[in-house]
Amino acid sequence: MLTVKDLYASVEEKEILKGINLKVNPGEVHAIMGPNGSGKSTLASIIAGREGYSVTNGSVTFEGKDLLSMSPEDRAREGIFLAFQYPVEIPGISNATFLKTAVNEIRKYKGLEELDAMEFLALIREKMKIVGIDQTLFSRPVNHGFSGGEKKRNEIFQLAVLDPKLAILDETDSGLDIDALKIVANGVNVFKQQSKEKAVIVVTHYQRLLDYIVPDYVHVLYNGRIVKSGTKELALELEERGYDWIKEENNIPASTK
C-alpha cells in the first residue's frame, strides 16, 4: 500500500530524514516511535504533503502511485488521512460545512455522486456515535475554542466520516487523559475493523496508546533513520528501558547503518 524508499528530506538545509525505508501493507498497523526530534512528525508531514520540506532523495508511493508529485488534496482523495498533532482552528467555518465539502470533494474524485444534505446528515449521525461527538460540537466552527481532547476527538470523527484507506495518527495521544485516549483508540479500531484493507500508522512517543491500538510492527526512529523494527514487544521494551539504549547503540554516525 505505502512504500517509502530511501527517503532523505530536509528543512531549511537541515537534514531531518536520512534514508527511511518503510512498507505498509493493507490491513497492517505500524507504530513509529522514537524520542523528540527524531523525525517522526516530519515523516508524517511529508507523506501528507505539507510544504516546507525538501525531499532530496528517495521515493514514496501509495498503491503504486508516486505520492511526492501529488498535491496534498489529491493524496487525501487517494485515501491518506492525517490526524494532526495540533488540529488547526478555522473560525467562521462550521464543522458541518467543512466536512460536507471534504466528503464531496473526495467523492467527486472517486467518481461518486455528491451527497445531498439529508444523506450527509445520515452519515454524520452514524459516525458521531463512534467518537461520542455531539451535535453542538458538530455545528461549531472547526476546532475553534475546542479543548485539546475535543480537537483530537474531532480528528477521529473526521477519520470516521472521510473513511480513507490509510490513517496516519501523528501523536494523537498527546495531551489526552485516559478516557479520551480510549475513545480515540476505539474510533481508530472501529475504522480498522470496517475492512481488512484499512491500514494505520501510529506515530507516538509512548507505549500507552499501543495498549489500545495494537500494532503489527513497531519501528524506532532515531536521528532520521529507522534504527530498529520489531513487533509490539519492542514497544513494551521501550516503555521499560526508555530511549537511551537506542541512542547509545546508534551514537556512531550515519554511514555505518
Partner: peptide, 22 residues
C-alpha cells in the same frame, strides 16, 4: 489552515473560499 483543509481533500482555492465566506 490551508494545509489542514488540503489534507481533507479540499484544494487551496476552495479552502480560501471557504474561509473567506465563513
Amino acid at each position: 489552515q490551508i494545509f489542514y483543509l488540503n489534507q481533507r481533500g479540499i484544494k487551496t482555492e476552495d479552502a480560501v473560499n471557504l474561509i473567506v465566506n465563513g
